[in-house]
Nucleic acid binder design. Structure first.
Length: 428
RNA sequence: GGAGAGGUAGCGAAGCUGGCCGUAACGCGCCCGACUCGAAAUCGGGUUGUCCCGGAGACGGGGCACGUGGGUUCGAAUCCCACCCUCUCCGCCA
């Protein structure tokens, strides 16, 4: 949610930002709605003031035992007006609120302009894509020889975009989760959280997943429960409606959770393999920071994600998302793209965003400044560190050998009971 | 699911025979000051949020908020109804 004051005082700033994002919302609509709301509010408040003073007079008279019936008569007229105008005011407020919830965040000034992913500049690259003496396979082709990933039975059990992991693949999934959490908690200072996997609409609204993106979510029928599409949702809402001491900042949380996504808009995309699933495991990072620190904290958090890829010896590059390609709630986003030899291209594996105060306004996340003063909105950041399925894909494709086996990164071997190579004969 | 208790400021807690008690008693915490070489202890003072109007600003005027939403009433933290959540006991359950 954007600051109403900003929309009131500098509508041109918001208009320019919306245009840069390719949004069709028009700021003039805010102005019209807000003016109507404020005019109604002024009327209602004046009437309420009158009601309060009459009511006080009635109280005095009654206490003295005097007759107050003329005042009581006058009050019924005032009350009727209040009732009518309040109804209009409520409608105006609700309409404005609904409109505001549709507004995306404003890109930070350092965000490059652009329409879509083709306009995302590469910040830097790490590692060298491996050279193979044979045509590298995609991960699902490798899995056909190695077992471990049973796409057919996943589909039988649940449907398309569900996969059954067996043996080494299930074990590798668990190894990656443990590896990621160990690094994040021991070395990067994150506190491990195990949040609910279902949350209510209020929580989904806090992060910006509702009301606009209901289509992307799985909802429990007949109940106010939604399956989380990422741990960002519960982690960012942990302190909703709280006022934290400034001394607590920055807070850093991590959690590994299944993520559930309907993938409603992606029919036909990535239909084979693990790249795009309805359910996948992800380790997420969330940071709550002082407003002055959020952009430096974004760099730090991106470093945490990069560190994981480096330890896994996976070549990647970092791109800065252009204004037109950024997510709804983000003020600035870096994507980490890992090299996939089977696809012969870089594919997104981590997204690190600074949402500024956008989510904090929705979720009512504030801190009390150390020197005293009014509560201020916290800045929230989130990043994947890392999604487990896509990491498993990258490990398979980058570590593949001519015989169809897969050499594991050294960092994972302790987590795999010393197994160094996944081959057909491996039994885990 | 059944029975009972409760949801008030950052935290704890009073108020709940309806009207100067909601800038909300009292306690803790926090901030400023005194004492001290300094600190602790002690003493004095301060400390809700939000929205609207006016003002460059210090600030001034007003509305709202006692879990949420309704209702009764001239007037509701206080009475009534529904719902949500927490705690205790019972039942059921991994």
């Amino acid at each position: 949610m954007l600051d109403r004051k900003l929309l009131q005082r500098r509508p041109e700033v918001v208009a320019a930002a919306l245009a840069g994002r390719g949004s069709s919302l028009r700021v003039e609509e805010f102005t019209a709605r807000d003016e109507r709301r404020r005019s109604l509010l002024a009327q209602v408040e004046a009437l309420r003031k009158e009601r309060n003073s009459i009511s006080a007079l009635v109280g005095e008279k009654k206490q003295k035992g005097e007759d107050a019936s003329s005042l009581v008569d006058r009050m019924s007229g005032v009350n009727n007006s209040i009732r009518e105008l309040s109804r209009d005011l409520e409608e105006a407020e609700a309409g404005l609120e609904a409109w505001m919830l549709q507004l995306p965040n404003i890109p930070h000034e350092s965000v490059p302009p652009g329409r879509d992913e083709r306009d995302n500049p590469v910040l830097h690259s790490w590692g060298t894509p491996p050279v193979f003496s044979f045509p590298p396979k995609e991960h699902w082709e490798l899995a056909a020889g190695l077992g471990g990933l049973d796409f057919d039975r996943g589909a039988k059990l649940a449907g398309s975009r569900f996969t059954l992991y067996l043996g080494w693949a299930a074990r590798l999934e668990r190894a990656l989760v443990n590896f990621f959490l160990d690094v994040q908690t021991r070395e990067h200072g994150y506190r491990e959280i195990l949040p609910p996997l279902m949350v209510n609409a209020r929580t989904m609204t806090g992060t910006g997943n509702l009301p606009k993106f209901a289509e992307d979510l799985f909802k429990i029928e007949g109940r106010d429960y939604y399956l989380i599409p990422t741990a960002e949702v519960p982690l960012t809402n942990i302190h909703a409606d709280e006022v934290l001491d400034e001394a607590l900042l920055p807070l850093a949380y991590t959690a590994q959770t299944p993520c559930f996504r309907s993938e409603a808009g992606s029919y036909g995309k990535d239909t084979r393999g693990l790249i795009r699933q309805h359910q996948f495991t992800k380790v997420e990072m969330v940071r709550y920071t002082h407003p002055d620190a959020s952009f430096s904290e974004l760099e730090r958090m991106r470093g945490h994600a990069e560190s994981l890829l480096q330890r896994l010896e996976l070549p990647y590059r970092v791109v800065t998302l252009c204004a037109g390609d950024m997510g709804f709630a983000s003020a600035k986003t870096y994507d980490l793209e890992v090299w996939l030899p089977g696809q012969d291209k870089y594919r997104e594996i981590s997204s690190c965003s600074n949402c500024g105060d956008f989510q904090a306004r929705r979720a009512n996340l504030r801190f009390k400044p150390a020197g005293g003063g009014k509560p201020e909105y916290i800045h929230t950041l989130n990043g994947s560190g890392l999604p487990v399925g896509r990491t498993l894909v990258a490990i398979m494709e980058n570590g593949q050998r001519e015989d169809g086996s897969v050499a594991l990164p050294k960092a994972l071997i302790p987590y795999m009971d010393g197994v160094e190579v996944i081959a057909g004969a491996v039994s885990l």
